[in-house]
């Protein structure tokens, strides 16, 4: 279980997160929606300390970390329990698909190379890239790269995978493939926190939808509750704007 309590973060005295509380149960898929600049990505990045929150408690399982006081060993422990899928994939450019997935297993988990290779190959198979093991990122399409990114994240057996707008830089025709992989992960019971603009994915997969605006969580509930009966004006405005601009896969 993941529990965030009172997460605050400011950049150059401009508050971006103004006290976020969020609980994510094991196996839940929580989708975070909100206009750009609402702090969604920052929140995600505070969970694994790519950004250090100014205040707040991050709890993952039995590990509790006070953001303001955390030291390197605690941060390292936290990062071993989480992985992240990035908007721009951020695959290791100097490594093949297989090596990208193996890297953490070998250097962080200390898994023997042949075992790590088997596991990495299995993960890549699972995301449909069994035939691309020895390709470098520069030889893969955006959609393929992002699926490698997901394989890399799941290979570490994290307690939660953080998805930071995983489909936002993809061509529309390959978005579906990446979302399918994510749905598969959700079905397998992976705990996921997903920042996305994909309303269809939220409707279909999310255990809960959270709407953020201006550094606060305005609304949280099942997809149906948030989409059909939003309580805040900001949520209604936002939903109208996205549904108008995006052709929604029903």
């Amino acid at each position: 279980m993941i529990e965030l309590t009172g997460i605050r973060k400011a950049f150059h005295h401009v508050p971006v997160l103004k006290g976020i509380d969020l609980r994510v149960g094991k196996g839940e898929v929580v989708v975070i929606l909100g206009p750009s600049g609402s702090g969604k990505s920052t929140l995600l990045r505070c969970v694994n300390f790519l950004e250090r929150a100014d205040a707040g408690i991050i709890r993952i399982g039995d590990l509790e970390v006070d953001a303001a006081k955390a030291r390197q060993p605690q941060i390292a422990q936290l990062r071993r329990r989480t992985t992240m899928v990035f908007q721009n994939y951020n695959l290791f450019r100097n490594k093949t698909a297989l090596d990208n997935v193996m890297e953490g297993l070998v250097t962080v988990r200390g898994v023997a190379r042949d075992k790590a290779r088997d596991k990495a190959a299995a993960c890549l198979e699972k995301v449909g890239l069994g035939g691309r093991l020895h390709f470098y990122p520069s030889q893969l399409s955006g959609g393929q790269q992002q699926r490698v990114g997901i394989a890399r994240a799941m290979a570490m057996d994290p307690e939660v995978i953080l998805f930071d707008e995983p489909t936002s830089s993809l061509d529309p025709e390959v978005v579906g493939g990446v979302l399918e992989v994510m749905k598969g992960l959700a079905r397998d019971g992976m705990t996921m926190i997903v920042v996305t603009h994909e309303m269809g994915f939220a409707r279909e997969v999310a255990s809960r939808v959270v709407f953020m605006d201006d550094g606060l969580i305005l609304e949280a509930g099942s997809a149906e509750e948030v989409f059909e009966r939003p309580r805040h004006d900001r949520t209604i405005q936002f939903l109208q704007r996205v549904t108008r601009t995006a052709q929604e896969p029903a």
Partner: peptide, 15 residues
């Protein structure tokens, strides 16, 4: 080198 490369390394738990 893109900052994302280091972030990705940290995100899988590398030092």
């Amino acid at each position: 080198i893109d900052k994302g490369q280091m972030e990705a390394a940290l995100s899988v738990g590398m030092s």
